[in-house]
């Protein structure tokens, strides 16, 4: 997973518009973000590049938008949500709106889920209004030492 973050981020879509002054671009119609093994598919993606190089924030919206990535152990993590925010510098994913995260044999769902992609660990989950349903089916087992490529 960590090599992914050295890769350039590619965004394909039918339509793109941008505002150079506040450095925000909007991609519409079958938007697909790829970065190494990471992929996010959505109907619309907003990219905020205000903080400059390498600190872009990708906000994907869809019904739902879908995120996938290959974990260190080779398994494929998958997440769905109406709103997926990928912070490039922090390497975190914030899922909100019917969020679901499926990792190995465990899956988590709720209104809001924050996931650290580099450590492959759940950072926070819960709901905005406090009484929303949060469900964890099975805790992911402790992270094995990532296997070294020969």
């Amino acid at each position: 997973i960590n090599q992914d973050f050295n890769e350039p981020i590619r965004v394909a879509s039918k339509f793109q518009s941008g505002d150079g002054i506040n450095k925000v671009s909007i991609f519409r119609e079958d938007v697909k973000i790829t970065q190494g093994s990471l992929s996010i598919e959505a109907s619309e993606v907003e990219v905020n590049a205000e903080q400059g190089k390498g600190r872009e924030i990708f906000i994907a919206r869809g019904n739902p938008a879908e995120y996938q990535q290959t974990m260190a152990d080779g398994s494929r993590i998958r997440a769905l949500a109406n709103h997926i925010e990928y912070q490039v510098e922090k390497r975190t994913l914030t899922l909100s709106g019917n969020a679901e995260l499926h990792q190995n044999s465990s899956s988590v769902s709720g209104d809001k889920i924050e996931f650290n992609m580099e450590k492959e660990q759940l950072v926070a989950q819960g709901s905005d209004d406090g009484d929303g349903r949060v469900e964890t089916i099975f805790q992911p087992e402790p992270k094995k030492k990532p296997v070294q490529e020969k």
Binding site: I9, V11, K14, F15, Q16, S17, S25, F27, A49, G54
Partner: peptide, 10 residues
């Protein structure tokens, strides 16, 4: 861009 192909960041 009405017929956008790809944008690469990085």
């Amino acid at each position: 861009l009405l017929d956008h192909v790809e944008t690469i960041y990085g």
